[in-house]
Design a binder for these strands. Structure first.
Lengths: 108, 108
DNA sequence: TTGACATATTCCCATATTGGAATATGATTC
DNA sequence: GAATCATATTCCAATATGGGAATATGTCAA
């Protein structure tokens, strides 16, 4: 084994800037692939591939609509990420406090 | 150009599970590399490499203490991630509401 | 200075990843 | 069924990544 087992999880999926853009774009309403292509100015296969990655970790969901596929962001799948990051909130709050205190001390 | 320019940002850095573990471990207090090695049971060079990546995006900070280097998580650098994820909060809230409403409807 | 300890870097390998081009699949309409 | 539209998949090339082993660098102690 030469690399960590492909942890295809939400963290991995959102590491790619284009994929974050896609999630943003599909957050408000479902849209066909073609619109993502136009909006993000990416090649169609590229978009399909990103959507596949996102779908595999349930960050987007899809349904067929005639010849089109409608995708939308499944915001719930972003929550774990939000929660992980949130566990650090108290630390950055402390940091701010410390900085403030240091400023006070200097001024005094 | 065959790959997206190495977007070495916080999103990328935290995509790696070991690096998230390191951030968790270094969140409460600064510690030398050796302790990270022991705690996470990784090889020392591996840890040094991960720390380098984390340091390059300011997710950890380091200072020398004699022969040791003391690292600690810079929680503030996680904030952008938290905020990006947070922009989806209202969507997952809506989803929950929708699900609840659907349940109500069925029951009625 | 030498030796020991702590950490960082380099080299190599295997695998993963992204984009582009070409092609395949699915669904609709005629 | 044939043509067409929309999307997905495959193949390829270039590059990135992580682990392991070996080695380099930096710091302290004697």
């Amino acid at each position: 084994m030469s690399r960590a087992a492909t942890s295809s999880d939400a963290f991995n999926a959102v590491a790619e800037p284009h994929r974050r853009a896609i999630l943003d774009f599909l957050a408000t309403e479902e849209r066909p692939v073609g619109e993502v292509v136009k909006a993000l100015r990416l090649a169609q296969p590229s978009v399909s591939k990103h959507l596949r990655v996102l779908r595999e970790v349930d960050l987007v969901r899809a349904r067929r609509d005639g010849r089109r596929m409608l995708y939308r962001t499944n915001a719930g799948a972003i929550k774990p990420l939000y929660e992980w990051a949130g566990t650090f909130e108290r630390f950055w709050a402390h940091q701010l406090r410390r900085i403030k205190e240091r400023a006070e001390t200097k001024r005094t």
